[in-house]
């Protein structure tokens, strides 16, 4: 884990390319609602990206009844182990920042895992408002 995932809201132009990339990579779906990252307009011409903070003492990890959320050693991200998840949605309800959404049709939470160290959102951001550095 030599690089850090950095969000630079000042540079965000609100194009939502990150949301598209995320949704596509993880659910083969162009639906922005399936994205793990979300862009919020905060003022005329200003935006902020909201994504999982990979908390050190993560509420989602604490509440999961099946240990389906675990810290990945190579990226430091809290990753969903799909095979262990029973779809109770408690993680989504417990995250104090609202960064996990629950995909009801799939029965699974939608949660950032940093794409194993090379986040698609950062790769596609045209204005370097998301970066690994």
């Amino acid at each position: 884990m030599d690089k850090t995932y950095v969000l630079v809201p000042r540079k965000c132009i609100g194009c939502r390319t990150c949301e598209l990339a995320c949704s596509f990579v993880h659910s083969n779906d162009g639906k922005l609602g399936r994205s793990r990252i979300h862009v919020h307009p905060i003022a005329e011409g200003h935006f902020i990206q909201m994504n999982c903070l990979q908390c050190v003492e993560a509420a989602c990890v604490k509440v999961c009844p099946t240990k389906a959320l675990a810290r990945s050693e190579d990226t430091g991200a809290v990753r969903l182990l799909e095979g262990r998840c029973i779809g109770c949605a408690l993680c989504a309800t417990a995250c104090p920042f609202g960064h996990i959404h629950f995909d009801r049709p799939a029965g699974l939470p939608v949660k950032c895992d940093l794409c194993g160290g090379e986040p698609a959102c950062a790769k596609f951001c045209p204005s370097k408002a998301l970066e690994m550095r």
Binding site: M50, A92, G98, I100, F102
Partner: peptide, 16 residues
């Protein structure tokens, strides 16, 4: 107390 969407919106508003 709040739903994930409102929590995230609230945080965005806070940063704003």
């Amino acid at each position: 107390k709040t739903c994930p969407t409102c929590r995230q919106n609230g945080l965005a508003g806070h940063f704003a």
